[in-house]
Design a protein around this nucleic acid. Structure first.
Length: 148
DNA sequence: GCCAACGTTGGC
DNA sequence: GCCAACGTTGGC
């Protein structure tokens, strides 16, 4: 799951303990949260649009799919006039903090790691903010977080 | 700040 | 239903 650290960083998640993943307004990303992500599933927390983009830690799904209330809030930057109480249109999951890596597993590092060549994040033009990660990829990232 | 790669919108 | 125009993402 990508987040811009300016908006919400791994440190924010650590501070808050958990968060509702608000603001996703892309159908594919929404569908992953609504249909695929189950309680207890682990997630990689990725910092995008920053000096050193990469995976900075892990979290886990603490609450499965429920409506993203910010879509109904006129004052929210994420307000969507097409969303209603009955048809919320946008869904999210809650993510609990697990750990922050001692160092970032950078996008550069990921690109240099053959075992991670299939990760969606390194594939050309992939701008999706939420993408599935295989168990193998997940454990490879954890290893890279421990040593080079 | 640039720009490639998308996704969405809306006229037709 | 097509597709041009527009907006956004996100690495560099």
């Amino acid at each position: 799951m990508k987040s811009e650290p300016n908006a919400f960083s791994i440190d924010d998640l650590k501070r808050d303990g958990s968060t509702s993943w608000t603001g996703v307004r892309n159908y594919q990303a929404r569908n992953f949260m609504r249909d695929q992500m189950k309680k207890g599933d682990k997630v990689l927390f990725y910092h995008s649009n920053t000096k050193e983009p990469g995976v900075v830690g892990t979290g886990k799904v603490s609450k499965e799919s429920h409506p993203d209330h910010t879509a109904l809030d006129k004052k929210s930057a994420y307000f969507d006039p097409k969303a209603t109480q009955d048809e919320p249109r946008w869904y999210l999951v809650d993510i609990a903090f697990e750990k922050k890596f001692p160092r970032t597993v950078t996008l550069t590092k990921i690109k240099d790691t053959p075992a991670l060549a299939e990760m969606k994040i390194v594939q050309k033009g992939n701008r999706l903010s939420i993408t599935p990660v295989s168990k193998k990829e997940f454990s490879t990232i954890l290893q890279l977080a421990r040593h080079d």
